[in-house]
Nucleic acid binder design. Structure first.
Lengths: 348, 348
DNA sequence: ATGAAAGCGCTAACAT
DNA sequence: ATGTTAGCGCTTTCAT
């Protein structure tokens, strides 16, 4: 059933020429004032008579005038734009980070220029574009950046903050959850629940979040005289973790009664494998613990025990660092760790 | 009135300050050429001797020079920035859209300035900021924009494209999946599977995607002499849909043997309710169909039958429209529909 | 093929 | 309190 196309479009054309954005000069001429006065009307802290300011603001409103952030940026050598360079949009943790970042930054009058790292690519290729836009700072999350590139940012005076990645470079900030501590806390908890055969499902082994969590986990086990039974690679993805789980629980394998996964997406993959392809019960036969506390972890059919990353606080911390310029001292000083929290649900 | 004749200034302003970003002027002085020559070296289509271009590019590389996109934008009155105004980051469909948008835009040398609409807010409040940044176009998805605001964009010559929202405003573009057709296709399919008691779980009833899908669904049922048994509100969320399902399948309700949900997130909520809180089997007793085909829909434990939205094509279409300026004719001409596809899995 | 000069729209320093 | 002026760093005529 198609509707008829209306024979005639009653909407009048706009009276103002499209593309003819009003400028401060237009306002200034209409009011017989200087352009700098227009600027002042839009600046809280400028001394200008309240009456004139109101006249200007009223006319601006009528003409649809807004000061150009581009011209202002050129003049002030500050754009108010923060680049967010982000990989792995497939992991719901990162969209949540992105949302929070965007909301918090806007509260401080700044904007997000988003760069998604193509799957399999790295952030280096994007940096020339990022730098061209004269961003005030760069936040990198779920992506790698080579040190020549972070040096280039340094030379241009642009601070770099890594979120959820710890890098051994004292010229850039890192903001992380206390991954190693939380790894140990998970071990502690599982051992306390009488788990004796623990396995780890890792992300990529050259990423600090995985290695820190693993190190903490092993340390926690060691504190109770235990060792890791198995460590398999799940590549931070659901599908990768399902496969890893099938290796872990394949025939002829040592029995495993607990699996700690380097993130929730993989924990859900492991759960899926256990439920669909084995007769093992969770948590009776096998405990499963994730990391992040993404939204889906709390869904009743998952009810995943996991480590919550304090996203809000991590982002507050990161945004605080943006105004600090570049880190001043050692690698240790350039790292900020925000405490995570073990959230107990039904899977462990 | 001018004052004195400006004194001859034999001393060129000294330019190279340590720590500052290099500018075209720095390069020009180092090489003894004009700044316009620097510009030419970075423009493919400029006539400049290849030898000089190479010298310039080499020095640029050495000094870490990149032309400032901000200064260029001011001059050209085009920023290369597209604003993406996005609500509902909690629905994985939108991060996927965002990722694809970002990748496709970068391929055409444009950047994404992201504005996340705070939950419960609307896009109107963000528009002043968006417009200040002189974006070349605005894409709105999963959010509303009042028509005074879209008029303001129009007055400033900024094209607006709605993604996944059909709006009755001939001055902005809309890009949608053929929601109504696909709603009818779902009805057709379910009736063909001998379903006789169909229900619909809606999103917000003032959003075109929901109403279009619903209208098509009812039309498809009517074509076979059937009527919708129930229509409940799930608010486009997982939790909302779980509740809606509990109303739908509560005691004393008419028996329902098929549920069509206005998106996948809600379909997963309905599935969760059916599996955890009822003894109804899917698909034997109840069929469940979603919309979007988000990643999770394909996970084996969900295996959700759903309508795939052609995200790639929709975005190609939207990006194509960005260069068309504003729509020229009627509401119907301002709407682009891209065909969806029913993906059969295990739930229907 | 290259240079000189005039801005893009705004802000800040300095005058009045 | 308001006006004047000199740029921010680049692109774009227009010369040469």
């Amino acid at each position: 059933m198609t509707r008829d196309i209306p024979p005639y479009d009653p909407l009048p054309r706009s009276t103002v020429r499209a593309g003819a954005r009003p400028t401060a000069r237009h306002l200034a001429e209409r009011l017989g004032v200087a352009t700098s006065t227009i600027t002042r009307a839009f600046d809280e802290h400028s001394r200008i008579s309240e009456k004139l300011r109101q006249r200007i603001l009223a006319l601006a409103d009528e003409m649809g005038y807004q000061p150009s952030a581009i011209a202002r940026s050129l003049n002030r050598r500050r754009t108010g734009i923060i680049a967010l360079v982000m990989g792995d949009m497939a992991n719901p943790f990162y969209p949540a980070v992105l949302e929070e970042f965007s909301l918090q930054l806007r509260r401080t009058g700044r904007q997000v220029l988003l760069f998604v790292v193509p799957p399999g690519g790295d952030a280096d290729q994007l940096m020339p574009q990022v730098l061209q836009y004269q961003v005030d700072a760069i936040v990198v999350t779920a992506a790698k950046l080579s040190s020549p590139m972070s040096n280039l940012c340094g030379r241009q005076g642009v601070p770099v903050v890594f979120m959820n990645r710890r890098v051994g470079d004292p010229t850039v900030w890192s903001v992380c959850c206390d991954n190693e501590c939380m790894g140990a806390a998970v071990a502690e908890y599982l051992v306390g629940q009488n788990r004796r055969h623990c396995a780890f499902v890792s992300g990529d082994l050259d990423v600090s979040t995985t290695t820190d969590r693993l190190r903490g986990f092993e340390r926690g086990l060691a504190a109770h005289g235990q060792r890791l039974i198995a460590c398999v690679q799940g590549g931070y993805t659901y599908a990768g973790a399902r496969e890893a789980a099938s290796r872990l629980f394949g025939t002829g394998q040592a029995k495993i009664d607990a699996v700690f996964c380097a993130n929730d997406v993989m924990a859900l993959g492991v759960l899926s494998h256990l439920r669909l392809n084995t007769s093992l019960r969770v948590p009776q036969d096998v405990a499963v613990v994730g990391f992040d506390d993404i939204r889906d972890a709390a869904y009743p059919e998952n009810s995943l025990t996991t480590v919550r990353q304090p996203v809000r606080e991590m982002i507050e911390c990161a945004i605080g660092l943006l105004d600090e310029g570049r880190p001043g001292g050692s690698v240790a000083q350039a790292l900020r760790e925000v405490p995570g929290r073990l959230v107990l649900r039904s899977t462990a």
